[in-house]
């Protein structure tokens, strides 16, 4: 059975002007041991999608559709049931390692907490396991580091602790929301390498959210491109990176700085900005910024166009870039 199947996920946030649909009709699937990368600009709905899966949307937000974990609809699950799954079968690591750990508790206790909660270990056994986990994520002298407070660790070490904390109960699904964005480039590479090794070891599925195409390309089996709350293109990483069927995907790649490009070449920015969820134009949400836009794009949202069996884009004029 598919580990995670998201079908028609629509998320609304409450605002004074009425509910705001920040994610619209997103569908995707993730198999065990697979990595799915979700890319897109800020405000494209990536993080909201992740929070909906783990059931931690902000207060007042509503999610419609289905989020099936091993056939169980998480959107219909009770809060009690979700608490039993969170940290146990689904875990999440966040962008900000600086603020995501509690400053007043020792890191060992923070890693051990989930083990005590879900595995019923006593504190000593949980701390022993926490030491093994810290060692596995590459923290030197893990046993001694159990007693450290978060402020005594560097950003990269804190993110390693966050990873250890998330992996404590050997989850089936790990959601990583921009896990490397707040880190130095050299540390970023180490963390990605660590995540890759851990996926193999633990046999879990990874949902990696990032705006960094290079990071996603390195680790993901499949990639989903989101734009203005909707999925624009989805496919196997290699095919998607090679074909770039959706004009938005092409724009994202075009905006990457190219080491081989001539000095002085201007970066090709996508003109305009992402439309706000309450100002979405009719038709394709990207048409205002799309070089290929035709009259039909302004009227009716495009249907899915398949490029290959498992590679599709929501565009009237999909096609290879260049």
């Amino acid at each position: 059975m598919t580990l995670l199947a998201v079908e028609g996920l629509t998320i609304s946030l409450p605002t004074p002007g009425g509910p705001l649909r920040v994610v619209r009709d997103a569908s995707f699937a993730l198999e065990r041991r697979q990595t799915l990368g979700i890319v897109g600009e800020s405000g494209s709905g990536k993080s909201m999608t992740a929070l909906a899966i783990i059931g931690l949307l902000p207060a007042g937000a509503t999610a419609a559709g289905r989020v099936m974990l091993d056939g169980e609809d998480l959107l219909m699950a009770s809060e009690e049931r979700l608490c039993a799954l969170r940290g146990n079968r689904i875990a999440m690591i966040f962008q900000e390692p600086m603020t995501s750990l509690n400053p007043v508790h020792r890191v060992g206790d923070q890693v051990a907490e989930g083990l005590i909660l879900h595995r019923g270990l006593d504190r000593a056994a949980a701390l022993a396991e926490a030491a093994r986990l810290l060692d596995r994520v590459g923290i030197a002298q893990a046993g001694a580091r159990l007693r450290a407070y978060p402020h005594e660790l560097s950003g990269g070490q804190r993110q390693r602790v966050m990873i250890a904390l998330a992996l404590a109960c050997r989850p089936d699904l790990l959601i990583a929301d921009e896990p490397t964005s707040a880190l130095d480039v050299t540390v970023q590479a180490q963390i990605i390498e660590l995540l890759r090794g851990l996926i193999d070891d633990f046999g879990m599925a990874l949902l990696l959210i990032s705006h960094d195409l290079a990071v996603v390309g390195e680790i993901a089996d499949r990639v989903m491109v989101m734009y203005a709350g909707a999925v624009a293109e989805e496919g196997p990483t290699a095919a998607l990176y090679a074909v770039r069927a959706h004009p938005y995907t092409q724009g994202l790649f075009g905006a990457l700085p190219d080491r081989l490009a001539r000095k002085g070449r201007r970066l090709a920015a996508i003109p305009g900005t992402v439309p706000l969820a309450n100002e979405l134009p009719p038709g394709c949400p990207f048409h205002g910024r799309c070089p290929k836009a035709a009259p039909i794009c302004r009227e009716t949202p495009p249907p899915w166009a398949s490029h290959a069996a498992d590679h599709r884009a929501r565009c009237y004029f999909p096609g290879a870039a260049r």
Binding site: E79, C83, R86, A91, S100, N102, P103, Q110, L117
Partner: peptide
């Protein structure tokens, strides 16, 4: 509203 509370909730702690 702090991030570490979200981390705690992601661990499976009740509100």
């Amino acid at each position: 509203a702090e991030d570490y509370v979200r981390t705690a909730r992601a661990k499976g702690l009740t509100r």
